[in-house]
Design a protein around this nucleic acid. Structure first.
Lengths: 191, 191
DNA sequence: TTCAAAAGTTGAGTGGTTGCACTTTTGAAC
DNA sequence: GTTCAAAAGTGCAACCACTCAACTTTTGAA
């Protein structure tokens, strides 16, 4: 739709080449074994330019983000007859299945899991969605937007992902963890 | 009980003077406005020595830690007739009340809340208790130590603290949030 | 054609953190 | 008491992520 001028295209191109260089080097030798200087050199830009495009070294790894939030909200919004916790459970399970196909994603995810700084950064980015999710839940449940239980459910659901992820049988884990949330949620709230 | 030799006493003393200098300067001018160099100078030690006692600048602020975990576990262990979630709720509420008395703690807590780096570090330290708490819960509930629901409940309870903390009426918030956990927990588990 | 904003560069600097080589202290064994 | 090795502490240089200020180049649009 939107025609991008030469300027914007070049900018995106620079950003992309930085991102590409970074992910390649990180996957080759590990996050901590590569300096920003080397990434900048590989992408043929200055370090200053690199930091004009990405706010931190960790940000070089997490390039997406925007789609996740809307997917999360959408999962709650059009959930058919299911309860909100169950809709979120299905969303996570399905997302995990989708990733399981691409082996490239496995490698990427191992990089994140094995690097404390990345784990943390990723988790922080992930929990940024709490407010948006809480608002969506509140709206669907027909309660005030700042309801505590909605905030709690949103936070718990987001945290549940990590709890589930480190289990062998993730699908079963998802059932149990979200089962807990569902019963608690259903107890004094009609959804 | 344990007689400390002159050596250990001196070491603790050095550590203490570093910690004291740090907290004093931080409270006076803010975390980001004080450099480690200045702290070291104030405590009359070298920067290298400072980092031999504390692993990072943030660690200078969180000096306790050990008592929290045992208190958490104890709250679950000897909970009388209450359910585990309710015991945790009471523990948090009581801890909050205890802190509310000392105005010194308010200032300290504002420092943490207002400094992103400290917020994050504090949260990371806090969630380190997840495993210990999960094990205690599992043992009390009579299920295998690596039960997913126990891990989830532990994680959720720890996260609940932050959710509750940023509300105006914390006691009411605690009731609602832990009420959610309690109903979910009670649903398919007799405690 | 002109102009101002945006992209990029360079280089110097900050601040936390580590490694190394060195001195001093101290607990304990002889 | 002397001796010795480990532990505590020092000073310095360096690394790394990140920032700032001043400057050049590019480019979209008036």
């Amino acid at each position: 739709m939107t025609e991008l001028g030469r300027r914007e295209r070049k900018k995106l191109q620079t950003r992309q080449s930085i991102s590409d260089a970074a992910t390649r080097l990180f996957l080759e030798r590990g996050f901590d074994e590569v300096g920003v200087k080397e990434i900048a050199d590989t992408a043929d830009v200055s370090v200053t330019t690199l930091f004009k495009h990405f706010p931190s070294k960790e940000a070089l790894v997490f390039d997406e983000d925007e789609a996740q939030e809307s997917a999360l909200v959408a999962a709650v919004r059009n959930r058919g007859g299911r309860s909100i916790p169950m809709a979120l459970r299905d969303h996570f399970v399905q997302a995990a299945r989708g990733h399981a196909d691409h082996p490239q994603f496995e490698i990427f995810q191992r990089l994140v899991v094995e690097t404390p700084a990345l784990r943390e950064y990723g988790h922080r980015m992930w929990t940024r969605h709490q407010d948006a999710l809480a608002r969506a839940i509140a709206e669907e449940a027909g309660v005030p937007a700042d309801d505590v239980r909605c905030a709690a459910l949103a936070r718990f659901a987001l945290e549940a992902r990590d709890v589930i992820f480190e289990r062998d049988d993730r699908e079963r884990a998802a059932d149990e963890v979200f089962g807990l949330l569902e019963h608690g949620w259903a107890a004094d709230q009609q959804t």
